[in-house]
């Protein structure tokens, strides 16, 4: 799952990876997250860069520091991230989808049918978010 790409700031990618784990529930609230040195070793990145990514999440209140122990996921972090992602959903996913659909001559009704079908398929796979 080493998914660092070299064309975007790495500290932001580290923050996003942690956020995704929290959204997916693999990093539960009030549990400890790996140390920056563990992140650095795992993703083979500079420890200072890993620390920068983790600190970004501390600033946003997603993680908090327990002195002398390490970093933990804040209570309510998952809900907070879900809200952020939901509000970014339109710009990030729907607008490009609409543009591509228009380019291909797919109209609104066809598009909503396709979305409905895909939603049903995702539900059958067992989606994480209820």
């Amino acid at each position: 799952m080493s998914a660092i790409d070299d064309s975007r700031p790495i500290f932001i990618q580290i923050a996003e990876l942690v956020e995704s784990e929290i959204v997916a529930g693999t990093m539960a609230e009030e549990t400890q997250v790996p140390s920056t040195n563990e992140f650095a070793a795992y993703y083979r990145i500079n420890p200072a860069t890993a620390a920068k990514g983790v600190n970004l999440l501390v600033e946003r209140g997603i993680l908090y520091k327990k002195r002398g122990i390490g970093m933990f996921v804040s209570s309510g972090a998952r809900e907070k991230l879900l809200q952020i992602r939901r509000s970014a959903f339109q710009v990030q996913y729907i607008q490009p989808l609409a543009r591509e659909a228009r380019k291909l001559g797919i109209d609104g009704d066809q598009l909503s049918d396709m979305v409905r079908q895909s939603l049903a398929a995702a539900a059958a796979e067992g989606s994480v978010i209820q």
Binding site: A41, R44, N46
Partner: peptide, 13 residues
């Protein structure tokens, strides 16, 4: 080399 470097740098900057 790269792996050991990251590991050791983390402990001894």
């Amino acid at each position: 080399f790269y792996d050991r470097l990251v590991e050791d740098f983390a402990r001894h900057p």
